[in-house]
Design a protein around this nucleic acid. Sequence first.
DNA 1: GATAAAATCAACATTTTTCCCGAAACGGGG
DNA 2: CCCCGTTTCGGGAAAAATGTTGATTTTATC
Lengths: 213, 213
Amino acid sequence: MSEVPSGAVQEAEVGQQVFVVDDDDAQRDSLVWLLESHGYAVRAFSSAEAFLAAWNGNFVGCLLLDVRMPGMSGLELFGWLARRNSALPVVFITGHGDVPMAVEALRKGAANFIEKPFSAEEMLRIVENCLAQEREGRTQRRNQADTAHRLAQLTVREREVLDLVIAGKLNKQIADVLGISIKTVEVHRARVMDKMGVTTMASLIRRVMSAGL
Amino acid sequence: MSEVPSGAVQEAEVGQQVFVVDDDDAQRDSLVWLLESHGYAVRAFSSAEAFLAAWNGNFVGCLLLDVRMPGMSGLELFGWLARRNSALPVVFITGHGDVPMAVEALRKGAANFIEKPFSAEEMLRIVENCLAQEREGRTQRRNQADTAHRLAQLTVREREVLDLVIAGKLNKQIADVLGISIKTVEVHRARVMDKMGVTTMASLIRRVMSAGL
DNA sequence: GATAAAATCAACATTTTTCCCGAAACGGGG
DNA sequence: CCCCGTTTCGGGAAAAATGTTGATTTTATC
């Protein structure tokens, strides 16, 4: 039996946090106070650089990000995180209404884009939506990571067999395509099932498909 | 054998068109001229109501939609189409920069949101992206519609069996759950495969999953 | 060159699926 | 009342997948 516990990435499960990045001290403190007084765990940073220094890829929650900052801008930080496959939802905060900027940010995957000044209710509503969305996506991402990890454990041959199985080929056809005997295909197939942690073809296909091909 | 040709919805395959809805005659004509001179098939309307009167659910291409219009607004038209499951990508055009409006539109699924004045190149680029995106989604939507149609043809019992098959149950287990004999399960299962238009379990699962469950 | 991982194949038994045939009960609609 | 779709069940046989045990060859790595 192959021992792949369950999670490829074992992260100490901490609760969701709200990350705030804003160079304006007053603005940042006000936001932190608002969120903390409503029970959220908040971590504030006065620059994109400070956030990055603390970021380790395991931040869970959402990020409230000021667009205009000295040094690295909010948009740059957003792009930086995106390139590193961060799943942290980002809510942009800006003082100067700029439609093209908002459009670009949202089309690139920002969770929201809000103008200052905003009401406390509005911000709380947005944060709550954002965190809820993050919770939803988390399980899915965990499964995807697990599946990707399991897929990576397959040998080249096993992966070839898997692809043909998913394509709906019979063992006989797979044997023909790969130029090997049916017996060998059965061996590979059994190993694939084992390594992927499934017992039925239905789960196998579901698992591989839901991880994106 | 069950005869379900291929498409649940048979629509006369017309090429993509660019639909323009704008109450400003000069603006609309200018846009139509720009697009037609670049080889696009354009259909223009001077109001949301006029567009709706012509809309039959089979419009293929994309929609350039002015936000502010007398009578039904662009946003209202957008909502109207969304409620009717229109897949027509919508590009909003507005004269007055309004970040919250842009954010709302994009979050509700608008393809883009552009401010006037815009350059010809920008508009052409956006239209081209939009049409490309629409082409990509079309095949998928067609398959989804076909699968939905086939699923709808299943009897209640057949659907129950299908669900259990997808859950990875063996015929014996399905028979137990439904309290019927294995033989009967085999019959249902064969009918399901036939009606769904597949020959292997792999294709069956792929088909049902890609239609969203 | 030894070791380990990967890939290859086989005999054997069992389970499961698929496909052919046929058939009976039930309910509704023409 | 008969036809049709639905659901139900069986025999029989072929095809396919699964599981166990064991073995050989190749390939990569130390």
